[in-house]
């Protein structure tokens, strides 16, 4: 294969929090009737993760499975595994009315980590990120400043963010502004009973 580069080629920044574009990530969109056993099976097999409920994301050793809408799932897997997994999915789906397609190159993915991660994200997203409200395991499609994004938490201090590839630089720049030195808010931290 020829030279492949992610949107920002693994750019990173340290401020209030650590921001990393984490490189190429395999992503497969699966649209279909999520109540069908075939669709469920194809999704869980491809991701190795349990079938997620509404707005949930489940993880496995090699990937994750996210509920994106009532008829859409996102399968995360290693970038190099996409074509294999997609081929298997297509085969298993057979004549089922569904759409499975590689979207890995259409997206960029970031990690935002640190104690102030909730506050940094709250500067850009109109979402209640209180620790008792937004927890690891939930995925939220929303806006990051002026662009569409999907966010979830890997652990209590780490967000993952997916946006379109063309606006990766914008997302990165906006996150850097939100994480600029001296801009701590102390809102979610202050409310954390711990």
């Amino acid at each position: 294969m020829s030279e492949t580069i992610s949107a920002l080629n693994n750019a990173g920044f340290s401020g209030l929090v650590r921001i990393d574009e984490t490189g190429l990530q395999g992503m497969i969109t699966l649209r279909g009737d999520l109540s069908l056993a075939t669709v469920k099976k194809v999704a869980t097999t491809a991701s190795g993760a349990a079938f997620p409920g509404q707005r949930q994301i489940t993880v496995s050793d090699t990937g994750a499975l996210a509920w994106m809408s009532p008829d859409e799932l996102l399968i995360l897997c290693p970038y190099e595994d996409v074509s294999d997994r997609l081929a298997k999915m297509t085969k298993s789906l057979g004549n089922t009315n569904a759409l499975a397609v590689d979207v890995s190159d259409a997206r960029a993915i970031f990690a935002i980590s640190g104690e102030d991660a909730r506050d940094v994200m709250a500067k850009l997203c109109p979402v209640d990120l209180h620790p008792e409200v937004f927890k690891p395991g939930e995925i939220r499609r929303t806006r990051l400043a002026q662009i569409a994004a999907a966010i979830w938490m890997e652990d209590d201090d780490t967000f993952r963010l997916i946006c379109f590839r063309s606006v990766a630089q914008y997302a990165y720049d906006a996150l850097k502004v939100a994480a600029a030195a001296g801009s701590a808010v102390g809102f979610h931290a202050a409310q954390d009973p711990a």
Partner: peptide, 12 residues
């Protein structure tokens, strides 16, 4: 009614 989110108007 689809994803259950109490959405801010800026998401709509």
């Amino acid at each position: 009614p689809y994803c259950g989110v109490q959405a801010d108007e800026t998401e709509l």
